[in-house]
Design a protein around this nucleic acid. Structure first.
Lengths: 189, 189
DNA sequence: TTAATTTGGTGACAAATGTCACTTATGGCT
DNA sequence: AGCCATAAGTGACATTTGTCACCAAATTAA
């Protein structure tokens, strides 16, 4: 069961089925519908979600009703409103499944205790954090150094699968531009 | 010596002078001049720098010669070209000290081994990573959700000390806008 | 299947920001 | 102290992007 999760939790070293099963006890399966909201803005994000199938979206809603996508979490990765989950304080962002999804959720205390079951987790978690941080640095760089056109071209090159499966409006607010602007970029590029 | 570093390395638990001294052996003091470049784009960033005095700046240089500041590292924090250091691959960014600074540098292998000397480091490092990641998420949010005017107002509120000590052009490319635009914002806000 | 809703595209115009050229002010260095 | 290089400010104009209104296409839900 859940080979993606097992791979993710193992890190460098392989873990036994017993160890993995013990860890699995603290994960709960949640099946979501399209556009289902898992965390509302203002809630404390109590769970970390592993995307076994589907895709999560973390987004902000400003006072004018405009949405901005902070992150997209593809299959095989953990995601949640990270600042809220880690600090256990109210979330600015919403967490939503963009399509019908299969999530494995784990609460804060269990997440912090994962290391008790899983010998490789301490290091694997640190590596994942480092990689997520690096990804976010690259996102910052693209936002401060490139125009919308370049950002779209880059996303198309690196994440063409995301572009294919997600509606334009989500891609647009992930890039930090309006739907209309993206619509026009598509013609030019 | 170096109370700021000791505090940072300790994390939650206090460490003894002996433990700290052992750790100190792998740090080397470097005194830099204003605008001194520590890592060139294309180099592998071999050191993590602890800012004991002064301020570091991590910036990108595009083909037109325009600079963009990815991060500013204040006193009492670690900084380097993080993706390059962690992955030990060539850096896109430059690392520079904005004023005369006092840095404590540690090479990659020693950094990875810090945990051998310091009982609290594993956890402290993870906490710092989480916090740095959260900070970068907030930066992404401000870049995708707010206008230049709002970003400047927010920076002035949260980091007025940085604004005071750094030249306008650095603040401008940290915000991802041109010097001229920032100049005009200052009058309006 | 159909009706309703959502999404995507486009024109016209507005607003924000960038670019260039130039002047003034500042601050580092000898 | 004084010179020089760098930084900051500003006007005019170009470019990019956003906003609004509207229609077409696609997708969802009944």
């Amino acid at each position: 069961m859940y080979p993606l999760l097992k791979k993710y939790l193992s890190g460098d070293i392989s873990i036994t089925d017993e160890q993995f099963n013990a860890a699995c006890n603290v994960f709960h399966l949640k099946t979501t519908k399209r556009n289902e909201v898992l965390v509302e803005s203002g809630d404390i994000s109590r769970y970390m979600y592993f995307v076994n199938k589907g895709c999560l979206r973390i987004f902000l809603l400003n006072t004018d009703g405009k949405e901005s996508t902070r992150f997209l979490v593809p299959e095989g990765r953990f995601g949640t409103s990270f600042p809220s989950f880690i600090l256990q304080e109210p979330s600015l962002a919403y967490v939503q499944s963009v399509g019908p999804s299969e999530l494995l959720m784990i609460n804060y205390d269990d997440f912090r205790r994962l290391t008790d079951f899983l010998p490789g987790w301490e290091k694997a978690y640190r590596n994942n954090l480092e990689q997520d941080y690096i990804d976010s640095i690259k996102r910052i760089e693209s936002l401060i150094t490139t125009s919308a056109t370049e950002r779209y071209a880059l996303l198309m090159k690196d994440n063409s699968d995301l572009i294919k499966m997600l509606p334009t409006k989500i891609i647009a607010d992930y890039l930090g531009i309006s739907r209309e602007t993206l619509s026009r970029l598509k013609k030019r590029v």
